[in-house]
Design a protein around this nucleic acid. Structure first.
Lengths: 152, 152
DNA sequence: CAGGATCCCGCTAGATACTG
DNA sequence: CAGTATCTAGCGGGATCCTG
């Protein structure tokens, strides 16, 4: 079942959204997804933070529990984790599944849409991880230049 | 001359940086580049916002002036534009060139490092622009479900 | 033209405490 | 376990004024 209307599909096909425009909805969406926690949650649900290589076949990505996510994203507060997960769920990027066990079990999983964004976000995370040394070197050079500023 | 130390190159080669760790420098870098304005500035310097197709050959990307960037990124404040550009310059992603004309001319250009990030960021921007209709539809559905919440 | 410097508001991240 | 609720400090970010 398609969850998009005809009008929406037409719009998408015509690429009529432009994030350069302040009023365009895509600008807001860009702002939402341009977030540290979004990147990390998506990557975690993509299986990037798992030590066990199980289910690493693209299909059937891991359904992670809240606590697993909290452990993977070191230093995240419950508030930010919950808040970001809700936002992702609302936007249709992840699904939230509640299993009424004795202590309730909640798992999160990427949707198809979420998986499409994951591809991009993985690139962002990897870029940061591979280029941080270069960036650090540039900063040192920049700051060194700034420190010997002409007093005259 | 190489601007990276031997230790840094070793580290990069071993992929020992992990943004999942709170203390890892790459986490901070991820936070920096996960920014609306960073994405838009990079895309603008990548030539995405230009009407004239000139210099769209990958090589020789446009050197945009401050005012051109301000016009392209509709709604950006001078503060955020200047601040983000400084940050990008410090990180070695863009170069800032001052030409001492009558009214001074300042142009910004992507470095090789900046161009490598551009590839990723273009994906982020395009994802937002192409998937905003779907996301909007999901939100509507989500909010509709939330509005008929059980009062009992 | 391309910013630098300030003021200041708003919101948001984080810490803490409580709960089904 | 997986949240919700509340409070607050901090700063992100816009508006405004000024300058080489």
């Amino acid at each position: 079942m398609a969850t998009t209307t005809a009008a929406q599909r037409r719009a998408a096909a015509k690429v009529q959204f432009d994030a350069f425009l302040a009023a365009c909805p895509s600008r807001k969406l860009l702002d939402r997804i341009s977030d540290k926690w979004v990147v990390l949650i998506l990557c975690a649900l993509g299986g990037d933070g798992l030590s066990r290589p199980a289910a690493g076949d693209g299909r059937g990505l891991p359904a992670l529990r809240y606590s697993q996510l909290a452990r993977t994203l070191a230093g995240v507060s419950q508030k930010m984790l919950t808040q970001t997960l809700r936002s992702l769920e609302r936007d249709g990027l992840v699904t939230r599944t509640v299993t009424p066990t004795v202590p309730v079990t909640v798992t999160y999983e990427l949707t198809d849409l979420g998986r499409s964004l994951l591809e991009v976000m993985r690139g962002v995370k990897r870029w940061a991880e591979t280029n941080i040394p270069t960036v650090l070197a540039h900063r040192e050079a920049y700051d060194a230049r700034a420190s010997r500023a002409p007093t005259s």
